[in-house]
């Protein structure tokens, strides 16, 4: 079980959090302008990386805040935690 360093509450057990999928997928500003393919790209397509992955997490049983983490999926090491809207402090290596 991970220990996640919530940027608002500090280190807490994984059981207090909920994973929210891949981070940095921006909702299109004008969805109606998009073709089916473009919309499907936003809606369905997600990466499944072995290695450094950017993820959204929610401190659902705590402060209810969403934030991002950088996790190495090959060994579950959390490389960084940062708030929504902030730039990822670690580069992607794929």
């Amino acid at each position: 079980m991970f220990l996640i360093n919530c940027p608002f509450c500090g280190e807490r057990e994984q059981s207090e959090f909920k994973a929210g999928g891949e981070a940095h997928i921006v909702r299109p500003k004008q969805p109606t302008e998009l073709s089916d393919d473009e919309w499907a790209e936003y809606l369905f397509m997600r990466k499944n990386i072995k290695g450094i992955q950017f993820e959204r997490w929610n401190h659902v049983h705590g402060c209810r805040k969403w934030f991002n983490i950088v996790r190495d999926t090959s060994n579950d090491q959390i490389k960084a935690v940062y708030k929504m809207g902030e730039k990822p402090p670690v580069k992607q290596n794929d």
Binding site: G20, R56, R64, W66
Partner: peptide, 13 residues
């Protein structure tokens, strides 16, 4: 509530 918070915090802060 979780979904609303999600949009509020991440898409429309």
């Amino acid at each position: 509530l979780g979904k609303l918070e999600d949009y509020l915090q991440t898409e429309w802060p």
